[in-house]
Amino acid sequence: MTHAVKFHPGLMLLEQYVEGSLSADVALAVSAHIDLCPHCQQLSHDITIDQAASLGEQNVSAHDEQQDWQQMVDFITSQPGLSAASVQRSNALPQVASVTVNGRTFEIPRALSRLAEKHNKWLQLGGIATAKLPTGEKQHVSLLYIDKGTEVPNHTHLGLEMTLVLAGKIVDENGEYGVGDLLINSPDDTHTPRTLADEDCLCLSVLSAPLKFNKGLTRLLNPLQQFFY
């Protein structure tokens, strides 16, 4: 865990994440990145404080000011507060979970821990295994395991591909990515990610459209693109 995170979501994505305007699957990848990245923990904290100031700047119309709120106040204050026990629970440190694949057990960051415990079964294809997280039909969020010394065939993205390294390391034409690094590939990007000979890798993968495989025989994989998606 001594790896310094090098690839961040960037200010624009962080701002939309804090605002709550990102689509849920993209926000989940950003949130898991933040769990692994002290730099973005500080940034998102600062962005929250900055954005929250807008609440005080809302123009309140005279109508809303004078609206009869009493009924709502009475209803709310008749409700019980949280019990001491649940206060204790909420103050606990970030929860982490773990998943096991290929005989290896990996720790999963807080943002993914609830969903990772409910992951679908692992599907294997050579040195690659993938398990979907139950995040709704239109979202394609999965855990992606790549065994050591394995190459994912060269592919293009028909939509946005976000890959967050949760354990180990992957390399592609553009560089080397370790724990916490977030790769964002747009439809124009083509790459061939692979693992090193001595280290496997677990990633979170968020896809907005299927992958398209480009080269030679691996084009035959295209019917299998559902495997990744």
Partner: peptide, 22 residues
């Protein structure tokens, strides 16, 4: 509103607590 059961929730996305000091 999109009525899904197993889904990403606000509690997953926004941690309400302290990360370890840095």
């Amino acid at each position: 509103k999109q009525s899904r059961k197993d889904d990403i929730s606000a509690d997953d996305l926004w941690f309400d607590g302290d990360y370890p000091e840095q």
